[in-house]
Nucleic acid binder design. Structure first.
Lengths: 262, 262
DNA sequence: CGTTATGTTGATAGCCGTCAACATACGTGG
DNA sequence: CCACGTATGTTGACGGCTATCAACATAACG
């Protein structure tokens, strides 16, 4: 009655990872962080040029394809990572297969948890993903004599906690229509925060959803059929248009926000 | 159609607080932390005897009655606190009055948030509550030269994040019966963790629920009627008995855990 | 003892889940 | 480039779970 979670996906990244490592020469490594796209937003922004070289030396790029597993629930976790590009979903599963996505992580979010050795959830690449992976030990050593780094991680965690609690309100108290509108508004804001603040009358905001209908349903506590119908309703209300390839075009962000009860 | 949140409760604590302060003499203050019941579990456990005296000097005891407001959403927050006794509920409210409890805090949990000046939710005493309140500044100063203190706070936040995500699974994917059983199991575990681990055949575990039916409903994303009916079902299944004064007696904890899909 | 808050129980309705059939997109191999 | 099979998405019919409305019971409190 419930879709069984795909827990048997192999760690198919290792091949691609080794290829990358083989191509990488030492000099590139040391400089990699300096030219990193998320250098200043990510937690590593707390580090000086000197420190970041130390981190750079032990960092590994890891390229994942949509659907690749990052960690299984209860896995021993021996590394931390920054999301450089793509979207990662964190989910929990009941013994009978019912599933709930408990977090969506975007760049430059941090993956992995200080003070814990086991992951409390299952993590998977929702889209193609680039990670910047650090060995847990090296990172913790750096954290020990760089309190600012721990502070950044702490603040990141506080943001996640706020997001989780906002989502609890959605899961517990919003209708299916409000849930779907809330999700679409969330993705739209990620894509173009400025546009959503004040959207000129005849602007088109086209976004590609990072999740399938099944994943949206698992994020919102709904079924795929209900998600599909609610998106249909929003289309009928001229709030958005749908295209191929998981793209939607938001015609009326204010209408969307209103439908979401934001 | 939805119960309107009680946001107009006055800060009726101040009277009680001032009375307490008047009774307190300096010598008591300095020693108060040393004899504190939650001294070693709370975040202050990170501090040396010397440091804790400094904290002790600026700490204030605050006694609240059930229903007293601790902070309104969007309030400027100028203090931190430890919960010494009682239960505090954190909740979020939609513009039309729909309400969701996003956190239940027990001793020795910490209230208040580093790196933020405004509360993202509404906090209220669910039962009579004793708080140990610190001015934000003093506490932050102590945090600045005691990294261990920040680490403790960080770990506390990580635990809250885990709890929030567990609750997301409940809100999004569990049935009403499972939700109510999960809540009762949660409270039972708080009250007597050891008993719940392994419960001898003819043991009675009696607990007083810290929440009214309306609050339980707001915690579980249900209505009061549904909560009442589900408790009735558990009684009919001989899993528990109900008494006056919000007490319930768990007859079969394993049955409760099973009904909760734990 | 009266009044109000809280909790219980029943009848009914509606939202959303379930089941089913179909449509479309995607990827692979010819 | 096209054919095929699979994954994903849509739409309809129906039913069940839980919200709603209502009446009543019990507890709490002055």
């Amino acid at each position: 009655m419930w879709r069984v979670p795909v827990l048997d996906v192999c760690y198919s990244v290792s091949a691609g990872l080794e290829r990358y490592a083989a191509m990488t020469v030492i000099s590139e490594r040391i400089d990699r962080c300096r030219i990193c796209a998320i250098r200043h937003q990510a937690v590593c922004g707390a580090l000086s040029d000197h420190e970041i070289q130390a981190l750079s030396a032990v960092a590994r790029q890891r390229v994942l394809k949509a659907g690749d597993v990052i960690q299984n629930a209860e896995d021993e976790v021996s590394s931390f990572a920054n999301i450089v590009s793509g979207v990662v979903k964190l989910s929990k599963v009941l013994s009978d297969g019912r599933q709930q996505i408990v977090g969506l992580q975007f760049p430059p979010d941090f993956l992995g948890r200080a003070y814990r050795t086991r992951s409390p959830f299952y993590a998977e690449a929702a889209t193609d993903v680039e990670l910047c992976v650090f060995p847990k030990r090296s990172f913790e050593a750096l954290m020990a004599d760089q309190p600012e780094l721990e502070s950044r991680l702490f603040q990141n965690t506080l943001d996640e906690l706020d997001a989780a609690r906002d989502w609890m309100l959605l899961l517990g108290r919003k209708s299916a229509a409000e849930k779907v509108a809330s999700f679409l508004a969330l993705i739209a804001r990620r894509k173009a925060p400025a546009l959503c603040e004040h959207m000129p009358a005849d602007t088109l905001l086209t976004i590609t959803l990072p999740l399938t209908r099944a994943e949206i349903a698992d994020y919102l506590g709904l079924t795929i059929e209900t998600v599909s119908r609610q998106i249909g309703n929003l289309r009928a209300a001229d709030i958005l248009e749908t295209g191929a390839n998981r793209t939607i075009t938001v015609l009326d962000y204010d209408g969307l926000a209103e439908a979401a009860q934001l």
